[in-house]
Amino acid sequence: MPLKLSSTLLLLLPALLLLAALFLVPIGWFLVSSIAELGTWREILTEAEDVLLSGAVGRSLVNTGGIGLIVTVLTLLLGYPVSYALSRVRGAAFTAILLCIVLPYFTSTIVRTYAWMVLLGRNGLINQLLLALGLVAEPVNLLYNRTGVIIGMTYVLLPYMVLTLYAAMKAVDPRLMQAAEGMGASPAQVFRRVFMPLTLHGVVAGVLITFILAIGFFVTPALMGGPGEVMVAMLIEREVEITQNWPSAALMTVVLLAVTLTLYAVYSRFAEPGEALK
């Protein structure tokens, strides 16, 4: 039975109130009060120009975008086959794959990040293995550089990609693929001409959601990255905690929020399979 708009709103009300009290009000207050501290509109604009065009912010924006892109591409490449497998199997195999993807998320991001540090460190398991196998002469730097950040973030973001792709793939009518096969298509043609175009909206949605999450990352790059891998979220934290320059933190937040909301607007158009096809 479809719910009336008023009953839908009523059901959403507790969640909306919580979100407003814990998120919208504080962030609004933070942004408005910090930026108002700067004085007149003219002063605000001058400060904004200074902050956003400064080298540190520029570099961190480029870093954030670059890392976000690489991580998104990697999760897509790793996630697509996994999602495909997940959409084709049933029963125990399905549960097993799903558990492998979701189970690690029952522990906190920090614990998992430390676990990666144990694996990737100079004396970590991976380096020990590579040395023992004689593949490398001296330990490889896998941590405190871009490689470390990318490995860590790809790992954390993979399930978002997998589950988004899975939803799109599950919605493909298997009879369409059988029909294509019956009409003379080879397995490669079935994939390229039927399956891929029908799951494209899922790919777009997965890419956007992964990228949106990636550009706001803080814990993983802070713990696994080096001094050259400063992302916008880390810079914001630094402005608040260390230099205590709240107005500048607020301006950066506005930029990050604007990018995220823009991407989300695009995402919401692709989240509906019907929309993407129009």
Binding site: R175, L176, A179, G182, M183, G184, A185, V194, L198, L277
Partner: peptide
């Protein structure tokens, strides 16, 4: 022989028209 080697024409239940 797999379906694509049989050279048959087919009409399916629910038509199986490709939506894209």
């Amino acid at each position: 022989v797999p379906p694509r080697g049989r050279g048959l024409g087919m009409v399916f239940q629910n038509y199986a028209i490709f939506p894209h």
